[in-house]
């Protein structure tokens, strides 16, 4: 019986029957065009990534025909521009790791504490005052930070450590950390503020203090988002170029001592690309290899971040 009714309904002619068809066709076409536009713009990022990857790999292949991979990974000297050329990536990676580590040990504690203050403690007045200042910190050009490290922070540190050379990893790392603080604090604050209020109230109702609530409930509850903040900080620090080029010295140095000068992967790339090495020479190709190494490193950290985000994901509704 129900079926019969449906048939009757279907058979009834639509009052819009005349207009419907051409309009419908045009609408469908428009829909297709829009979809294509959106897909194209989405694809550009993919195309760019793969183009970069392809260039890095294709320029690296001739390099590895000259230099054995094992030498590249284990040689303790990086002197591609010398007559007695050595191509060990370790000194550069070491410089990159060291500056990153110093930057993170500044940026993560400072950024996290700032975020906790802004999201849990600050009165509207303090929030309105501090946030624009933090945003300003992120707007300072990196080259300015570089000279700030070289001309201001290093002399200050030299008062504490008289033996500190003019170019050193410590000063560059600290300033890089300050530079990254706004990224950490703003993403961490967003993550903390997205923790639903019922967890805050639940913890306070148990007799917890504000600090206990923030550290024992809100921080773990927001950790998925906070881990993205930390991973972004790591990526920024690994890829940072200007500050280390200016303030850390450009001397590849296999050391874990932050009081010495060192070169990072990025600093080396800048140095070579500004020089007058002929294209296609081994020395020039070495910057592509260094770039590839850096890209792989960043990729590893991003994957780790992806894992962290999923591991600590809490869904709130």
């Amino acid at each position: 019986m129900e079926l019969a009714e449906v048939q009757v309904n279907a058979a009834r002619p639509s009052s819009l029957a005349g207009v419907r068809n051409p309009f419908q066709k045009w609408r469908k076409l428009k829909e297709k065009i829009i979809e294509l536009c959106l897909l194209t713009s989405a694809m550009t990022s993919v195309v760019v990534v793969f183009t970069i990857l392809w260039i890095l790999v294709s320029e690296s292949i001739p390099f590895f025909q000259h230099v054995r991979l094992i030498d590249f990974l284990t040689d303790t000297e990086w002197t591609p521009l010398f007559e007695q050329a050595h191509y060990g990536i370790l000194p550069l990676l070491c410089g990159t790791f060291l500056t990153t580590l110093i930057a993170l040990s500044v940026a993560i504690p400072c950024g996290t504490m700032m975020a906790l203050f802004l999201s849990e403690y600050a009165t509207p007045f303090w929030r309105e005052t501090l946030k624009p200042v933090l945003e300003l910190l992120a707007a300072v050009p990196t080259v300015v930070y570089g000279y700030f490290a070289l001309m201001t922070v290093t002399p200050l540190l030299q008062k504490l450590i008289p033996s500190l050379p003019g170019f050193n990893v410590l000063s560059a790392g600290i300033v890089m950390g300050v530079m990254i603080v706004p990224y950490v604090s703003s993403l961490t604050e967003d993550a903390l503020r997205s923790v639903p209020n019922y967890l805050r109230e639940g913890s306070m109702a148990m007799g917890a203090s504000k600090a206990q609530t923030a550290l024992r409930v809100l921080y773990p509850a927001a950790f998925s988002g906070i881990s993205s903040a930390y991973i972004l900080a790591i990526s920024r620090a690994l890829g940072e170029t200007m500050v280390v080029s200016i303030a850390a010295g450009l001397k590849p140095n296999l050391t874990l001592n932050p009081l010495e000068p060192a070169a990072t992967v990025t600093a080396f790339i800048v140095q070579v690309s500004q020089g007058d090495l002929p294209h296609g020479s081994i020395g020039f190709q070495s910057i592509y290899v260094a770039g590839l190494a850096l890209l792989i490193l960043t990729l590893v950290f991003n994957l780790f971040g992806f894992y962290l985000r999923r591991r600590f994901k809490e869904t709130y509704d």
Binding site: E201, V217, P220, A221, E314
Partner: peptide, 13 residues
């Protein structure tokens, strides 16, 4: 004084 809320709100622990 203890309190239990409308919506269950266990901590993410």
């Amino acid at each position: 004084i203890g309190m239990v809320f409308q919506k269950p709100n266990p901590f993410p622990k």
